[in-house]
Amino acid sequence: MQSENYTNPPAEVSAYLESEATEERSGWRSHRMRLIILVGVIALAVAYMVYAAFPGNTQYFVSVSEFLDDPRLHDGQTLRVAGALDPESFRREDGSASSRFALGDKEPDVPGLIPGTRVMEASYVGVLPDLFFNPHSEIILEGSYDAQSGVFATDNILVKCPSKYQSLQAENPDAVPGAAGATQGGY
């Protein structure tokens, strides 16, 4: 259908092609082709990203108690469970990278786990994140639950921090002065 335009171009098309020549741009078909490919690639990339970021509009992760309500439902399935570390539960075999710990529900912006909350047993092999033991951290475990052993096998650990920044002094005025460095400012 386009080739007909070439053999018998309407007035506006030929005027357009002439304006083309003065603009020092040749091969407009390749320009148009590149533009179509460009738009196509971007549309596909955006579609994929939206798909990846909002999987079926489900939540980004489930809480420990949501998970514990029916762990069997999640048997073998890869998922994310968020909560706080129970610091008493942490065990590591000497000289090994494998660790065992328990995760419980966490209230946003309140350090530590909710007192008396149920906990989920988890295992992990590897280097722990810097902020893993910080009570402010919300720990997100990526992995799968094994119903047989009752342990959540963690592949990956993410750390979510509160949307709040403050200095050590403001957080805990009783803290040893100067412990966090001399750049605390004189204000």
Partner: peptide, 9 residues
């Protein structure tokens, strides 16, 4: 217990 921040420079 006060957890000291990591360095990460």
């Amino acid at each position: 217990m006060t957890e000291l921040p990591p360095t990460n420079l």
